[in-house]
């Protein structure tokens, strides 16, 4: 059984809000002239946002020295998978209505989708290896596998960049976020001694 404390419950509920908001917009016909695309884009955006939140956990943990954040990483990770799955389903069902020959051509000819699929496959692999018993079973390999989250983030950013016509502001923002988060990890692991000492509270230096 999962035990929820109040904060965790609050965050768990908040993770459903983007979906609720989207459903509300669908019901109110609030999505403009290309509602199919709007739904699809909204879900893609939220997949990427959750992915960024997953990556933010470790740096926050290091900086605040707050134990127990790993649970949130796991929760955000599963929501990344959840929204990415809805994003994929929206593409297959809402947009293409499962007309496979057209889907096949579309994917083959759209290189930006390849990056999306790569990101999704990684997120999928990470999601199916979340149960506690799998973590135990995998031992050290689990950590190695879950480092691929950075590769997923890179692929997701490429997926975003590669579909644009020239307006780079939004994907650049996410790229910056991911570089910062990855940069932090790299710094920490390479200069472990110095940096982690600076980050630790005074008494523990």
């Amino acid at each position: 059984m999962v035990k929820f404390n109040k904060l965790k419950l609050g965050i768990f509920i908040a993770c459903w809000l983007p979906l609720l908001w989207l459903l509300l917009d669908i019901i109110l016909d609030n999505l403009g002239g290309n509602a199919v695309q709007a739904v699809h884009i909204r879900l893609g955006d939220w997949s990427l946002r959750f992915l960024c939140m997953v990556l933010a956990i470790t740096p926050i943990q290091t900086m605040t020295n707050w134990r127990g954040m790993a649970e949130y990483r796991r929760m955000f990770g599963l929501f990344t998978f959840f929204y990415a799955t809805l994003h994929l389903l929206a593409y297959l069902v809402l947009d293409h209505f499962l007309v496979w020959p057209i889907i096949a051509t579309d994917i083959l000819e759209s290189s930006y989708i390849w990056f999306g699929i790569a990101a999704y496959l990684i997120v999928l692999a990470l999601a199916v290896t979340t149960p506690k018993w799998v973590i135990k079973l995998m031992g050290k390999d689990w950590k190695k596998l879950h480092r691929f989250i950075y590769l997923a983030a890179g692929a997701a950013i490429m997926h975003y960049f590669w579909q644009l016509k020239g307006n780079l502001a939004e994907p650049l923002f996410y790229l910056l976020v991911i570089i910062l988060l990855l940069g932090f990890r790299v710094l920490v692991s390479f200069k472990n001694r110095v940096v982690s000492r600076l980050m630790l509270p005074k008494g523990r230096r």
Partner: peptide, 24 residues
């Protein structure tokens, strides 16, 4: 002839709703 980054094989006819396949 696809665009270098995406397919031009099908299109979303605006005004068509959810669960309507794309037009070839």
């Amino acid at each position: 002839v696809p665009h270098p980054r995406w397919s031009q094989n099908s299109e979303r006819l605006l005004g068509s709703g959810f669960f309507t396949p794309r037009r070839e």
